[in-house]
């Protein structure tokens, strides 16, 4: 299926069904991220049960240096 992660549309494999699956992919694994799914905040406690759907928009953000 296709999802948009941080503004980039990408195809993900069938086995990647939940937010938890997406976050365990190598490019995101081990990073402290905050997740927004289709404009709604998704807390860590719901990653495992939140199913991804075709066309979902996912924002993965984290803290960086700033003033």
């Amino acid at each position: 299926m296709n999802v948009t992660v941080n503004g980039k549309r990408q195809r993900i494999e069938e086995s990647c069904r939940t937010l938890e699956d997406l976050l365990s992919r190598p490019e995101w694994a081990g990073k402290l991220v905050i997740v927004e799914l289709n404009g709604e905040l998704a807390g860590r406690e719901v990653y495992g049960e939140t199913l991804l759907s075709e066309g979902d928009r996912v924002e993965l953000v984290h803290f960086v240096g700033g003033g």
Partner: peptide, 16 residues
């Protein structure tokens, strides 16, 4: 203070 930005898949630095 810190800022919030999209995660860069290429960078592994975590300010926190």
């Amino acid at each position: 203070t810190v800022a919030l930005r999209r995660v860069d898949p290429e960078s592994s630095d975590n300010i926190v």
